[in-house]
Design a protein around this nucleic acid. Sequence first.
DNA 1: AAGTGTTACGTTATAATATAACATTAAAAG
DNA 2: CTTTTAATGTTATATTATAACGTAACACTT
Lengths: 166, 166
Amino acid sequence: MLTNSRLVHQAHDHGRCINAALTRALDLCVERKARMTPTREAVLRLLWQSHQPLGAYQLQDQLATMLDKPIAPPTVYRAIEFLLQLGLIHRIASLNAYIGCPFPNSDHSNLFMICNNCGSAAEVAHASINDLLQTASDKANFTLQSQTLELFGLCPQCASTENESK
Amino acid sequence: MLTNSRLVHQAHDHGRCINAALTRALDLCVERKARMTPTREAVLRLLWQSHQPLGAYQLQDQLATMLDKPIAPPTVYRAIEFLLQLGLIHRIASLNAYIGCPFPNSDHSNLFMICNNCGSAAEVAHASINDLLQTASDKANFTLQSQTLELFGLCPQCASTENESK
DNA sequence: AAGTGTTACGTTATAATATAACATTAAAAG
DNA sequence: CTTTTAATGTTATATTATAACGTAACACTT
Ligand SMILES: [Zn+2]
Ligand SMILES: [Zn+2]
Ligand SMILES: [Zn+2]
Ligand SMILES: [Zn+2]
């Protein structure tokens, strides 16, 4: 079970997360002969500002501030599209929001654990869950191609805070 | 593993599906002292017209035709909201669409198998997947509250058609 | 360096999904 | 019957996402 859950839910040197993500991104661009332009890098940075998914229009606002010029929606969505294609970010369907992928090299039938309180989202690659989903699909004669798995609840931090306040 | 997968993906007496759904809905309304108004019933019927999820604005169009008068979005969303509350329908987050629930009495941490070709969506209650998700959550100290599980691929029918055409 | 094709970006408009706010009507309760 | 509550109608608007078309930057050939 590969996960960034501990990093997401605990204090940590987040600068490292960002740097690691950018390095991986640049490497991947070289490998795929894709171009990491300033806008794309800015969006990726913004999505790595925290471990909470951001909506496209939040990105738009922050991007406009960051680049100090007005940014139109297509600019944001183009960068998102590019980063999604490369597998550097994910879309969280139930939130209409986007988040950086902590392990863009894995095979990516991952799930997210999303905190209803603080909004943080941890990504989890869980082989046996995937196996089970595959088995269930096989049994139903369903040809599995992709999946959206989003768990909602309370992250460790928020859960313990809730308990205190009782 | 409780599922309507066979019904969804095969020819069947769909009138039965509709009638059964309506009966269950009326029963549930009595039980919960909720009111099944004409608009709500119409929306539920529309969502049971097929085993494919419908968007809110598709519902709006069809509802307007069905009731032969203009229908505004809030009317549709109110009916959706009501039916969601009662657990009679589900929202498919990755499609922004809604579908009737074939077993509104189960405990409802279900998953969907959605055909990328024909759009049909089968609902599956799979205890061992839920157990595994619960275990994974526990391990991560994540307090699981709800989940969105949407599998995409090819339904049995569409998969075999694809094979033929090769 | 100049030409050429490709990729990314800018700009405007609009589509698609969803909700807020307030007025009106219908139903249930007393 | 009247009071209260629940449901619906109506208008406007918020939020998310894309279409269409023009321009600029880049990269490759000659
Ligand atoms: Zn971090
Ligand atoms: Zn939290
Ligand atoms: Zn049916
Ligand atoms: Zn199909």
